[in-house]
Simulated scan of single mutants.
Amino acid sequence: MSIITIVGAGMMGSAMSGPAADNGHEIRLVGTPLDREIIDSVRETGFHPTLHQQLPAAVAAFQAEELDKALEGAELVIGGVSSFGVDWFAEHVLPLLRPGVPVLSVTKGLQDGPDGTLTPFPHLLAERLPEEKRGMIPFNAIGGPCICFELLERRHTMVYFCGADLAVLEKIRALLSTDYYHIQLTTDVMGVEGCVALKNAYAMGVSLAVGIADREVGEFDAAAAEALCTPGAPDRNPVYNPQAALFAQSCLEMRRIVSLAGGDGALAGELPGAGDLYVTIFGGRTRRLGMLLGRGIPFTEAQEILKGVTLEAVVIITRVARALRARGENPDYYPLLFHMDAILNDGAEVDLPWSKFGR
């Protein structure tokens, strides 16, 4: 049995307690300052109020102020913060990490630089380590199609663990692999992390088609908007042909971007790209955002409807479009991405550039 500390009590980080518990480990779940109510609930009843599920009995909950205690003796640290929590993680968690203890992150995102470079979060965190710990802590990440609810329900899931050292990855896989949580390994951090970040962007793009079809059938009032944003609600007017075409275009653009950034673009057609995109377009906040925008609702209004919801797609679209411009890339190679950027950041109306797709 090992001690595994999960920092960040969001849905995906918390769901990682499932395979960890099934392997007999002691699990410590630490909330960020934004997770106080979640931690209180898990402490009192074991119930996670955002996941709407019971966490395993092996989970002990800690508030942010107890972070140092929760990290004592940990043999693996799982970073469970969203991309918006990376700065908090770097400031408060990195100084407390012990040399040699690996970090496995569920955080999805890329940071762009002024020269157009795109940096995955494991590399970014390694750069932000205190000087005396540089090179002493291995940073790794998870990528691939994994819905948190299904992970806790023990449905078969296949993912990638990526990091610089295969031996470290093998040890982490041994801690977390189960007969339903299937793990592949790769040292291509940019390939995996580029795909799983971009899939959030392109899930919004594919979902525009559903909103467009919905707009074509008639009125759309406040009640319809609320229903649209209810997790698990069926589409009012499901469409498949345009979604399939947008899915293919998304994979094409992901392949180009990942290759440009130094990763294996072929992964865009495998688990981290197409696989993760597939599950993301079936539900969740990114899909709801795309549907609202496709319906003709301006981004500012869509933000208000989705108030309190983390919209990571907006960040990744903005950063990647900015990076491609800095590199002087031809926007015609990425027509869907640049159209999404125009919708979000320039107030452009949704008008999918079909004639540019597939080239």
Rank of each mutant, 00 (worst) to 15 (best):
L169Y: 02
E170D: 03
I172M: 08
L176K: 05
S177Y: 00
T178Y: 04
Y180A: 01
Y181K: 02
H182N: 05
L185R: 01
L185V: 03
T186M: 01
D188R: 01
V189Y: 01
M190R: 08
V192Q: 00
E193N: 13
C195P: 03
K199V: 05
N200I: 10
A201L: 07
A203K: 01
G205R: 10
S207N: 12
L208E: 05
A209Q: 04
V210W: 08
G211W: 04
A213C: 02
D214L: 10
G218A: 03
D221M: 06
A222G: 00
A222D: 08
A223Y: 06
A223K: 15
A223H: 11
A224E: 04
A225P: 00
A227Y: 09
T230Q: 15
P231H: 01
P231G: 00
A233N: 10
P234C: 02
D235H: 11
D235S: 11
D235P: 07
V239H: 08
P242F: 06
A245Q: 12
A248H: 12
M254A: 10
R256V: 02
R256A: 13
A261I: 14
G263T: 12
G265M: 14
G265I: 08
E270R: 15
L271K: 03
P272I: 03
G275H: 13
D276E: 14
D276Y: 12
L277I: 15
T280P: 13
T280W: 13
T280V: 08
I281N: 07
I281A: 11
F282M: 15
G283Y: 09
G284N: 13
R285M: 11
R285C: 11
R287D: 02
R288W: 05
G290I: 06
L293V: 14
R295Q: 14
G296A: 07
T300H: 15
A302G: 07
I305A: 07
L306C: 10
